[in-house]
């Protein structure tokens, strides 16, 4: 996302944002997008002239510098082609638009779920009851004591194990780094049998039909062959939910979104939340509510938050007023 907003925009707003075909960045308005394209993708590297389209730049290079433009600068690997005439949002192939929308929707629900998980708030417009809400767990003192004892025993066991050098069958906490296969993609690897978060609106028109041949775009009109290498150069994009059940090998790495680089894919830590969601769906409780020790985050917060001034009853001015240099004694002055 270009700009982080304080409030969280809803999915329609996100989908309405114009975005750049060449690098998938989205913008507040069309004007910004066009100036972005002129500056990033349609700028002549010889003389700095900003053209309106890739074709325009090609002609300019040809006529002014006697050179041939072969690819669009700063573009994603599979979108460097000159054959598509892009100006702002015009000219973007329908299938690419659909892919983009899907990604936005995907990211939106990932981020929403993440926020929900983090805050326990129901989604906007809902008064609760839906979605994973934070449970306030009431424990009796016996239960707390028992949990403490369990935790201590566990820590002791871990220590012992560490001393012995034997690995413990510890369930990795959800906050550990993403696994190598996930690391490359801001998306979770397709999970057979786990459709993307419940409640996400289905965009059935975009879902690939089961059995569709790889490379074909489902019910979308096929691009004419003259459409150039772009559509075919795009790797098969799995849909969410992925009906095929099995991810094509190497899919995550080949996804066009992966090539976007930092900042392009939304939701840092999306892997974590994906895992949380998957765990929730599979009925596994996240460590926080289980027997695990309190999440280190909250502990750190408590320990780390240091107030520069922390007297909640007496103001700094009152303290200063008591210092000898400022003190006022009525009798002395009277």
């Amino acid at each position: 996302m270009g700009k982080k907003k304080r409030g969280h925009p809803d999915v329609e707003e996100l989908l309405a944002r114009p975005w750049c075909y060449y690098c998938e960045r989205d913008f507040e308005d069309l004007k910004l997008l066009i100036s972005h394209q002129k500056a990033k993708h349609f700028k002549c590297e010889r003389c700095g002239k900003r053209l309106n389209t890739a074709g325009g730049l090609s002609v300019h290079m040809n006529q002014v510098h006697k050179e041939n433009l072969t690819s669009v600068e700063n573009a994603l690997a599979n979108r460097q082609g000159l054959d598509i005439e892009i100006f702002g949002m015009e000219g973007v192939p329908e299938d690419i638009i659909q892919q983009h929308n899907q990604r936005i929707i995907q990211n939106f629900y990932t981020a929403q779920a993440e926020r929900q998980a983090a805050t326990g708030n129901p989604p906007r417009g809902l008064s609760g009851g839906q979605g994973p809400t934070k449970k306030i767990k009431m424990e009796t003192s016996e239960e707390i004591k028992k949990r403490l004892a369990d935790h201590r025993a566990k820590v002791a066991a871990q220590k012992e194990a560490a001393a012995n050098g034997t690995p413990l069958p510890v369930v990795p906490p959800p906050a550990t780094g993403p696994s190598p296969s996930q690391a490359a993609s801001p998306f979770p690897p397709p999970q057979p049998g786990f459709p993307y978060p419940a409640g996400a609106p289905a965009y059935p028109a975009m879902a690939y039909q089961p059995g569709a041949a790889p490379g074909a775009f489902g019910n979308l009109p096929a691009r004419p062959p003259s459409g150039g290498p772009v559509p075919s150069a795009l790797p098969q994009r799995p849909s969410y939910p992925y009906p095929g059940g099995v991810a094509p090998p190497g899919y995550p790495v080949a996804s066009p979104v992966d090539a976007l680089g930092p900042g392009a894919g939304k939701g840092p830590g999306g892997d974590d939340i994906d895992q949380l969601i998957r765990m929730a769906e599979a009925g596994i409780k996240p460590a926080k509510t289980g027997e695990e020790p309190p999440a280190p985050v909250t502990e750190k917060k408590k320990k780390g938050m240091r107030m520069v001034y922390d007297d909640t009853e007496v103001s700094p001015e009152e303290k200063m007023a008591m210092l000898p240099r400022y003190r006022w004694v009525e009798e002395a002055a009277a």
């Binding site: 750190k300 917060k301 320990k303 780390g304 938050m305 240091r306 107030m307 520069v308 001034y309 700094p316």
Partner: peptide, 14 residues
């Protein structure tokens, strides 16, 4: 943000 060596977290100002 407080430096890591001081335990991280936030320094909160009035």
């Amino acid at each position: 943000a407080a430096p890591e060596e001081e335990g991280g977290g936030d320094i909160v100002y009035p």
